[in-house]
């Protein structure tokens, strides 16, 4: 078997593409990789009723990522396949920003994108795979992301109130909503009466102090 996308990181090698999003390899279900040696893994997928090419293009447009990824302030393309990412370290608009450079490792239009960080405040790598849904309706988008517990992961955990794994899951959810509907559902700005201490505590424990990305709207 060639290198499995589920057990090794940055896969510049060919993927075993026999099945839906490589969650199944040679007929067997592969669970997501275990967290170990200071590495966190998250694998998540979503069925999106859009063409793989369209979704690929949306994901590949890194400068638009702040529209659907939480806490991103800005992404700037710095060269072919490289970009600089800046992210807030708390939920306040004027909070400290951390930055890192990212490099694309694999870029197969309509099929997959793999990337990793190079230098800066974070150490992470990831991959997104676009697969036709088994019944032919829509595209299965699978994200596999790996972090080393470093500044990024701990900033997320402690300041932002989102575990980094959950952030990856939420970002894919935002991506799907934006792709399917042209917007990301938002309720944080709806009117309400006085929240009081308990109400405010609940907001943060429900993750509602993490600003929902605007979807560019």
């Amino acid at each position: 078997m060639s290198s499995s996308p589920l057990t090794e990181k940055p896969y510049v090698e060919d993927l075993p593409r026999s099945t839906g999003a490589s969650v199944v390899v040679s007929g067997r279900y592969l669970p997501p990789p275990e967290d170990k040696d200071g590495k966190l893994w998250v694998r998540t997928s979503a069925l999106v009723l859009k063409d793989a090419q369209v979704l690929y293009a949306m994901w590949r447009d890194v400068e638009a990522a702040p529209q659907w990824q939480e806490h991103l302030v800005e992404v700037v393309e710095t060269g072919p396949g490289t970009s600089r990412w800046s992210m807030r370290t708390s939920n306040d608009d004027d909070s400290k920003v951390i930055t890192w450079e990212s490099e694309v490792l694999a870029d197969e239009p309509g099929v997959r994108i793999a990337w990793r960080s190079i230098g800066g405040d974070v150490d992470q790598a990831g991959e997104v795979i676009f697969d036709a849904a088994p019944n032919g309706v829509g595209t299965v988008v699978t994200v596999l992301q790996e972090f080393r517990m470093g500044k990024l992961a701990s900033a997320w955990e402690t300041l932002v109130g989102r575990n980094p794994k959950q952030a990856v899951i939420e970002n894919l959810r935002h991506f799907k909503a934006l792709a399917e509907t042209g917007e990301i559902p938002r309720s944080q700005l709806d009117p309400h009466g006085d929240r009081g201490v308990i109400g405010n505590f609940k907001r943060s424990s429900y993750g509602e102090t993490v600003p929902t990305p605007t979807g560019g709207n």
């Binding site: 829509g138 959950q166 399917e180 509907t181 990301i184």
Partner: peptide, 21 residues
Amino acid sequence: NCIFCKKKYWAACDNTNPNAH
């Protein structure tokens, strides 16, 4: 627009709960 709305299971819509988690 999601698969559940298309199947007319509107109450199961994928895209309208900001706190789906």
